[in-house]
């Protein structure tokens, strides 16, 4: 790995991310809010436990799609920003470097630490997270889950591949599909995500 992920995190976290006098936070071409992790967990877990399994799977797919759009557009906005061009682009020499840089960049938003476990250029990306917020809460409140609950990391893993190896933005979203193959909410020790071509 040529990319120094700690350096990327240090550079990216120095970005001025703050709301203006009207309470609006705009960055990388998206509108951003800071909200409590517990709010998102409670909202999604309540919904999923309120509907039958068929409807729950449909909701989970919609959550995946929402995050995929979030990752795809936000990370593209980031990588085309002046800040990225000045500070991070000089560190990137190959498409694989860009994947590592985007994964590292994710580690400034407070959602838990995501790392690359395996990257097969153009084909497959495996990422892992050991401290995602939601899985531990699901275990506490609902016990072991039948499927992974890390929609955020799952779809983000696909979005990195979509941005680097799929048709150029904005036509590449959904080229790769990610599956959460292990999740702490299911009793595993790590949450693991595998993105491959659809």
């Amino acid at each position: 790995m040529a990319i120094d992920d700690k350096k990327i995190i240090e550079l990216a976290s120095s970005l001025p991310l703050a709301s203006n006098e009207k309470g609006i936070m705009a960055a990388f071409g998206v509108y951003v809010v800071m909200n409590y992790n517990e709010f998102y967990y409670k909202l999604t877990s309540k919904i999923i436990n309120m509907v039958d399994d068929k409807e729950a799977q449909a909701v989970e797919q919609k959550l995946y799609d929402a995050v995929l759009a979030c990752g795809y557009h936000t990370f593209h906005g980031a990588r085309t920003s002046m800040h990225w061009r000045d500070l991070i682009l000089p560190l990137i020499k190959t498409p694989e470097d860009e994947v590592y840089a985007l994964v590292a960049f994710t580690n400034i938003f407070g959602i838990g630490y995501i790392e690359v476990e395996e990257l097969i250029p153009g084909k497959k990306l495996v990422t892992t997270v050991t401290n995602a917020y939601d899985p531990g809460r699901y275990l506490e409140e609902y016990g072991p889950q039948p499927r992974g609950r890390c929609y955020m990391f799952n779809a983000c893993t696909a979005s990195y591949m979509d941005l680097v190896y799929a048709p150029k933005y904005p036509d590449g979203m959904g080229t790769f599909v990610s599956k959460e193959v292990t999740c702490r909410s299911m009793g595993h020790s790590t949450c693991k995500f595998v993105a491959e071509r659809a």
Binding site: N37, H73, F109, G110, I111
Partner: peptide, 11 residues
């Protein structure tokens, strides 16, 4: 409290 940043596409 733990917080995180999320964009409008997600919200």
């Amino acid at each position: 409290s733990l917080v995180s940043f999320h964009c409008h596409h997600y919200n």
